[in-house]
């Protein structure tokens, strides 16, 4: 299930003093099975763009074609679209509202008019998938869960609609380090088991480096780059000038490079760093 974006423009509050051209004539394609990262500083248009993918907002001009369906057409079947494209907003736990987890997760499937048997099956599967075993958690209140559990419960509510594309807007913001790890492991397991295409907005360059196949850099509503992480993070100076950082490990390698260490390729994780630096250290293995 691919996403094709053609000449997309979005203008907030056109013809008013507050008019803002948030997305400026961008075109790109996301392929089925891709883990696609989107980065950019606050106000660069990331969230505005993401909201187009399940037609929460409609473009001022341009086209978005998802799985062959033009979702920007007047008669587009938005119900079918929202079934296909699942959206996990920032701090999704703020949207939990039901008395029990079972009811909360069932809300989306009910709205999509799944049969009662199917609703039960998807709720059970979704809760199990996010690591909140159905039998143990179905009657618990979503508000009695820990921060990381609440977020997983909210993701279960999206997965239950059986989307084929999952969009995550800063899924690990505000979590402690182990909570972050758990959520990212969950995203990977969802990718392999139910939603093959993942679009993730993140400020965490370490996460982007580790998980994304390709990364789009947005700046002031325009695409600056679409590149695999290693090629992208080789452009340190250009990213810095856009108000973005490279991952801390890449930054460190860069600083050591200035002191005379040699890194044959751009380092984006610990292992690469260690194996590049070891032979250059006195007492290290050659």
């Amino acid at each position: 299930m691919s996403i094709v974006v053609e000449n997309l423009n979005y203008i907030y509050m056109p013809k008013t003093p507050y008019e803002k051209h948030a997305i400026k004539n961008i075109s790109f394609e996301i392929k089925t099975g891709e883990f696609f990262g989107i980065i950019g500083h606050t106000g660069s248009g990331k969230s505005t763009l993401a909201q187009h993918f399940n037609a929460l907002i409609k473009p001022t001009s341009g086209k978005i074609i998802i799985d062959g369906m033009d979702i920007t057409a007047k008669k587009a079947d938005l119900k079918l679209l929202r079934n296909k494209v699942g959206m996990v907003f920032q701090y999704p736990e703020n949207q939990l509202f039901e008395e029990t987890l079972e009811k909360d997760v069932a809300y989306g499937p009910k709205n999509l008019q799944f049969s009662p048997e199917k609703i039960k099956a998807v709720v059970e599967r979704s809760l199990n998938l996010v690591g909140l075993p159905y039998e143990e958690f179905k009657n618990r209140s979503p508000f009695d869960l820990s921060g990381g559990q609440k977020r997983r419960a909210a993701i279960a509510g999206v997965i239950a609609m059986e989307p084929e594309i999952l969009i995550l807007d800063e899924p690990t913001a505000g979590l402690d380090p182990s909570g972050k790890r758990e959520i990212m492991e969950l995203v990977l397991s969802l990718k392999s088991e139910c939603t093959p295409t993942i679009i993730m907005i993140s400020h965490d360059m370490e996460e982007i480096a580790r998980y994304a196949d390709r990364v789009m850099v947005l700046n002031d509503g325009e695409i600056k780059f679409i590149l695999p992480p290693r090629e992208l993070f080789a452009k340190k100076e250009e990213l810095n000038s856009l108000g973005l950082d490279v991952p801390p490990i890449t930054e460190l390698a860069y600083a050591l490079g200035k002191k005379g260490f040699i890194f044959p390729k751009t380092v984006i994780n610990d292992n690469e760093f260690i194996s590049a630096i070891l032979p250059q250290l006195k007492g290290g293995k050659k």
Binding site: P248, L252, A255, K259, G260, I274, I277, L278, L281, G283
Partner: peptide, 25 residues
């Protein structure tokens, strides 16, 4: 790095690590 026999002094920040590594270059 310690696992590979490289012993560094106590470091916390990236600047301290950079300095310690430069001593071994």
């Amino acid at each position: 790095l310690q696992k590979y026999g490289i012993d560094l002094p106590n470091v916390l920040t990236n600047e301290q690590l950079t300095e310690a590594l430069c001593q071994l270059l």
